[in-house]
């Protein structure tokens, strides 16, 4: 019975989360132009409840990696991800953030997922704003289905904790 209540509660919470994603734009390169376009009134990401760019990772739960990630930026990116509130989601915006794009050399990281788990990848150089909105909708589904990377990790951690308690109780 208690199980049912908590699951339902979580569903409600996730329903709330999916329409109030607070994004942290990690804008490093030219894709930033397209990000501005998505955020501006014409494409208006606000319609999907993700209109608040928080420029502090501690206040946000959606990391938008917009642009090329260099190897030098890796530690900063990881740190920002670690500072974000749980549960959190990540969108890789553009081919550079997804795979490194056309950079195949000493400085560019072959995709931000080398450092942090990414939930949705948006191809395109840069992607059209419609693609970004599509990705956001995909992410919202994912939030509601509870299978974002951080949600799954939290679930795993909870199970491990329960098992540890059960062993202690025995």
């Amino acid at each position: 019975m208690l199980e049912l209540v908590t699951t339902k509660l979580e569903d409600v919470a996730n329903w709330g989360r999916k329409f109030s994603l607070f994004s942290y734009p990690f804008v490093t390169a030219c894709c930033g132009m397209e990000f501005m376009s998505v955020a501006a009134p014409k494409y208006d990401i606000a319609r999907f409840g993700a209109e608040f760019p928080r420029f502090s990772p501690r206040q946000s739960d959606l990391l938008m990696i917009v642009g090329t990630i260099t190897e030098k930026q890796g530690p900063a990116l990881k740190r920002i991800y670690d500072q974000m509130t749980e549960p959190k989601w990540v969108i890789a915006f553009g081919v550079c953030a997804s795979t490194g794009g056309f950079y195949q050399n000493y400085h560019a990281m072959p995709g931000a997922d080398q450092v942090i788990p990414v939930d949705v990848y948006i191809p395109g150089c840069p992607p059209r704003p419609e693609q970004v909105l599509d990705a956001l909708i995909l992410l919202q589904d994912r939030v509601a289905r509870k299978d974002g990377h951080s949600q799954l990790r939290l679930k795993r951690e909870k199970i491990v904790l329960q098992q540890a308690r059960a062993i202690e109780d025995d």
Binding site: G74, P75, H107
Partner: peptide, 13 residues
């Protein structure tokens, strides 16, 4: 003579 695709990562998952 630096290998074209040689990366020297600082962090990885």
């Amino acid at each position: 003579d630096y290998p074209k695709e040689k990366r020297q990562p600082l962090v990885r998952r």
